[in-house]
Amino acid sequence: MIRLRKFGVVVGTRCTFDCRHCLLDKRKRKRSLREREKRLLCEVVRRYAPASLSFTGGETTLYVDDINRISSALPKNSKSNPGIVTNGGFASSVREARRMLASIRGLTYVQMSYDKFHAEFLPKSRLENLFNVCRELGIGFRVVTTLQSPLDLKITAELGAIGGFEVAVQKICDIGEAKKNGLAFRHFVFDKKVLSQVCPNRDQLVYQCGRGFSVCCSNLIYNGFGKYCLHKTPEDHFNSEFYKRMRNAVLGRLFVQHGGDPESLRPEHSSPCALCEHIFRTTDIVKTWPKK
């Protein structure tokens, strides 16, 4: 029996910002969910009642109607915690922040993206507005900040001065605009720790707007390997060759199993997602895929 504890929906790819490090290619930032996708997502949410239901984008506040429709499909007695990821651009004032958050039904938390790239578009006052309104309304709040280098951690001091919210730290992946602009996190040397790591998202299912379901939300999806890891339904995905192989795979072992030489790995392979892409790109793993 499939249990879907954590489910994320990329509800669209349009955005109000144009960040240089965006994981989405600028040319692909026009998608919204089609009617059949919305019906499908409502059905998925109704059937599986995920404990965690989160909406990302693009900028999620451009898709409030769709978010409300999908989260309204949760069963009445569901203990799900719907949340959004946002750039906070709408929070030009406390009043505007309150208005927007009140329009999203059942919202339990907000994750705001803020780093040196978002700061090119967002005055810090909007972060403060959003944090204060979340606190007032009893909505959970945290910031995710991305790193191009460890020195970008200096932003945590700035954020700490605003309030005692959690700051989640994430390295910039080599995908989308970040890849085009050469902004991915710069690994100092090859970090062998990655060889013992597993797919960091294997416990979470994500629906990619216009594309399908996958536990992958990174390099394989955005760098040309979607045909191996995206599927039309959650059931198709959980029964797929990709899921069967990746859910328990230790990346270093997988790499060697398919003919890879660990001595050939370079600093840029030091993250699980980058190593995973490297495996798909350079080893014989796709040749061993069963033909449909």
Partner: peptide, 25 residues
């Protein structure tokens, strides 16, 4: 720079490399 960051980053946490899905805060 990093020493100052470490001093004030009391609530900083790691996230998985590509995990853009928040957990309830």
């Amino acid at each position: 720079v990093l020493l100052q960051a470490s001093d004030t980053a009391g609530t900083a946490v790691p996230v998985d490399n590509t995990n853009t899905l928040p957990v309830p805060a």
